[in-house]
Amino acid sequence: MQVSLRVRRFDPESNQGPYYQTYSMDAPDYYTVLDALIHIREETDGTLGLRCSCRSAICGSCAMRIDGHAKLACKTKIIDLTADGGEVTVEPVGNMPVVKDLIADMKPFWDKIRAVDPWLQPEGPEPEREYVVPNEAMQDLAGAMNCIMCGACVSDCTVLEAELNRGVPVEKTWLAPAALAKAYRFVGDPRDDHQYDRLEKLSDSGGIWDCTHCFECIEVCPKGVAPMDRIMALRDKAVSAGITNNNGTRHAKAFHDSIKAYGRLDEVTLVPKSVGFFNIRELLPQMPTGLRMLKAGKLRLPHKAENKKKIKQIVDSLDKEQME
């Protein structure tokens, strides 16, 4: 099929800023975006910069934005993107500085991984043989270990993007999905003895509660790691471990309590309950919003589900089961 690759080029050695260059070719049906890029690099333009190695979605080198979303070039077939005669836009990953063409500086990514102390920390004497642990626990962790550190999730993380857009220095930005999925791999490991410390650290600002739940990382992860789901699991583990003195936990609890009481969500008390009723420092900035909403008739008594007693019964019974 005939296809054009519109590639974002950038060479810091030239005086030119980033620009787009279009390469047209006749691509066989089986061609992936990586096949096409390699074809360009080898046959027409040796100056094109990109990283790639394994060609089979295991080394994590070739994450880039393809038609606006982070993908592994080696796993993305052109025929799935466009029809004959179409165009595919290829850009470097987002949220990381571009070094040259499709090559980004991954340092911020690795720094975040490093920040979660990513190694097993057992305590006490090592057993002579292996640790005896259930296979299900290992299977769950293997799901997280599927991560190939390609950076697709960090590229398309909306929270990180907002932070960088508003000028937060990269070392102060939040941990972002990959590092948190990596953290989950240790928190969920029955052999690790530092789960509480880890969860406490992860519950700080810039950790698990900063995730906005946008599903971008689940959507773009090429290995089914579902980082956001891991973050949600970390939240659950943190709360179960009793690490609850944060807005995130209070927000979740307020949500839960509202459903239990009314069968519905009561947005009115959600904010004060989340930041704490007496937390003037954080409540104050929210006050204008509240006042505006009051004026517009948007603050009303909670709407209640009919037969809400039944909902409360379900909540109580499942909560009880969970406790057990």
Binding site: E126, E130, Y131, N135, Q139, A142, D189, R191
Partner: peptide
């Protein structure tokens, strides 16, 4: 295994 490799287990956890 002690370093942290998540080897598959048998039904006894070994």
């Amino acid at each position: 295994e002690h370093m942290g490799v998540v080897f598959n287990r048998d039904e006894t956890g070994h």
